[in-house]
Amino acid sequence: MRWMVTGARGMLGADVMAALSRAPGEEDATGFGRDLDVTDGGAVEDALDALAPDVVVNCAAWTDVDGAETHPDEAVEVNGRAVEGLALACAKRGARLVHISTDYVFDGQGREPYGEDAPVGPVNAYGRSKLAGERAALAHGHTVVRTAWLYGARGRSFPATMIRLAAERETVAVVTDQTGQPTWSADLAARLVELGRSGAPGGVYHGTNAGRATWHDLAREVFTLLGADPGRVVPTTSAAFARPAPRPAWSVLGHDRWALAGLPPMRHWREALRAAWPYLSVS
């Protein structure tokens, strides 16, 4: 199979490229970073024509959640309109698009895991821009994979920040009123490759590690793995950290749809964090 990966220099995109290099069989993968501007429709079509990929994994995105509040048009350009062009171009060429989305398309008011077909209602500009991209991809029969609380070996991540703060501070205040699913980018990348190879139907899938945690829970687990006293992680609330964009309080996703691809849900977040531990860099 031939693969094209956009955003291939970022945390998830780089892990997708690594997963493809380890995949069984002959996987021909080409990754683009900033050398392909996904908002340039002509450049995107040229790349598709040159590579003739079977599967396109779109990891390119505007990811600055707070920045999207003050630059909503720019966020929509990358996360919405660019996806519309990519989705249409892939559909015309018979390529399958696997587009990465987010838990931020939900309002965060739930108390049970959001199913793949649960009503959406983003509470910030970033979420609205990502929802626009979802709708564009789905309108052309493609696949959307929502993820949440992603961390990995590249770029900034919450676990790496906690590792650094554990060395710098006696105590660290972390919120207890946001609940989600910490997800290792390498686990998600491997699942994206499995999904692309599976021939599973298009639609929405939820790509997060299993279980649930607050940011406070995750920080305590990091301290535990460091051999530090988890009691140094002090509970607080989101009100103590004023930010331009509101965050959803509940970001727990259900995973029922993986059965359509013949794949089990991803492993528990604590198990994944332990596996990721040797690869995490201090941020």
Rank of each mutant, 00 (worst) to 15 (best):
V44H: 02
A68T: 05
G180Q: 09
D73G: 01
G155R: 06
R154A: 04
C59R: 00
V16I: 09
D49F: 07
T30H: 14
V172T: 07
A14T: 06
D107N: 10
G231K: 01
A29L: 07
R257P: 11
T147A: 13
K92N: 08
E84T: 05
P248R: 01
D73A: 15
A87T: 05
L260E: 15
A242H: 09
D54G: 04
D40H: 09
E134V: 13
A189D: 03
G33A: 12
P248S: 02
H140Q: 15
Q178E: 15
H268M: 08
G108W: 06
T237G: 02
P53I: 14
T147M: 07
A75G: 13
E84N: 04
G203E: 03
L188Y: 06
D64C: 01
A8F: 01
A61R: 08
E112S: 10
E221M: 07
A272I: 13
P235F: 09
L20V: 08
D177H: 12
A95G: 00
L150M: 12
A249S: 14
E134N: 12
W215T: 09
A245K: 08
L188H: 05
A261I: 15
V234F: 03
A118I: 14
R191D: 04
G211T: 01
T102G: 00
R9C: 10
A125R: 11
M1S: 03
T179Q: 07
T70G: 04
A186G: 12
R146C: 05
A160P: 15
W250T: 10
R220H: 03
A89P: 00
T176K: 00
W149A: 08
T183G: 12
A160K: 11
G41E: 14
R267D: 13
N79P: 00
